[in-house]
Amino acid sequence: MAINLVKGQKIDLTKGRSSLSSIMVGLGWDPVETKKSGGFLSGLLGGGGGGADIDCDASVIMLDENGKLRGKENLIYFGNKKSKDGSVVHSGDNLTGEGEGDDETINVDLKRISPSIHRLVFVVNIYNAQKKKQDFGMIENAFIRLVDNQTREELVHYNLTENYSGKTSLIPGEIYRQGNEWKFSAVGESTTDSDIGSIANKYA
């Protein structure tokens, strides 16, 4: 049974789970539903009863023990779907967020992560947010969850419930190394960065 976390909570992933080696990180979101209308606003949002066409992108920033990003190869996103050590694999880009369940997934093989990597920071940002005048106030039901790839058991689920209006990127959570164990932290932070490059530069 999954443990539901709130912002700021941390949990051991591997302690007591010696068999846990590969996890699926699922990230999901939905466009805010708009009321049916034939008016001008409806046209802007893509028709009556639907949500805005918002393209959210999930990424992973792989950091060293000092919290630094060492090289572009440690930034995993739709343009670089696999880490150099093969431990992190991105499923690909979902352009709309429509439908239930995970919108984008990232597989993480904990056993294959390079010893030089100590933190995996998961980021979701809105593609072309400034140009499209979009922000996370137009998104609802955002979550991050971790699933054991071997047993398919959902280990952790964190719903992001804050109002992120005006924000264009989210850091829902991170996996980090502590000794020989791996832990997960429900971060739930937001920024006004418009692309993954500007977020990654903060860790350079």
Score class of each variant (00 low, 15 high):
residue 200 A to L: 11
residue 204 A to T: 15
residue 147 V to S: 03
residue 24 M to R: 13
residue 114 S to W: 09
residue 80 N to Y: 07
residue 202 K to D: 07
residue 7 K to G: 06
residue 175 I to H: 07
residue 91 S to F: 05
residue 144 I to G: 08
residue 58 A to M: 04
residue 18 S to I: 03
residue 22 S to A: 09
residue 68 K to N: 11
residue 68 K to Y: 01
residue 130 Q to R: 13
residue 116 S to F: 10
residue 162 E to K: 14
residue 106 I to P: 06
residue 159 N to M: 12
residue 136 F to R: 03
residue 130 Q to I: 09
residue 198 S to Q: 12
residue 123 V to D: 04
residue 99 G to S: 06
residue 27 L to W: 01
residue 41 L to R: 10
residue 72 K to G: 05
residue 47 G to H: 02
residue 108 V to G: 06
residue 88 V to S: 06
residue 202 K to Y: 02
residue 92 G to E: 05
residue 204 A to D: 14
residue 46 G to I: 06
residue 29 W to Q: 02
residue 180 N to V: 04
residue 44 L to Y: 11
residue 52 A to W: 02
residue 43 G to P: 01
residue 40 F to E: 10
residue 109 D to I: 01
residue 19 S to W: 08
residue 37 S to G: 12
residue 141 N to P: 00
residue 27 L to T: 10
residue 170 L to M: 13
residue 119 R to E: 15
residue 118 H to E: 12
residue 45 L to C: 12
residue 108 V to R: 03
residue 118 H to Y: 13
residue 131 K to V: 15
residue 124 V to T: 09
residue 114 S to D: 15
residue 156 V to A: 08
residue 57 D to P: 05
residue 154 E to V: 13
residue 35 K to Q: 14
residue 33 E to V: 14
residue 65 E to M: 08
residue 37 S to Q: 10
residue 89 V to A: 11
residue 175 I to C: 06
residue 128 N to A: 12
residue 184 F to W: 09
residue 59 S to K: 03
residue 181 E to P: 00
residue 53 D to Q: 12
residue 192 T to Y: 00
residue 86 G to T: 08
residue 140 E to C: 09
residue 151 T to F: 09
residue 103 D to L: 01
residue 119 R to G: 00
residue 140 E to W: 01
residue 63 L to Y: 03
residue 108 V to E: 09
residue 143 F to L: 04
residue 135 D to E: 07
residue 204 A to H: 14
residue 129 A to Q: 05
residue 156 V to I: 15
residue 93 D to G: 06
residue 170 L to N: 05
residue 50 G to F: 04
residue 42 S to F: 01
residue 189 E to Q: 14
residue 200 A to G: 10
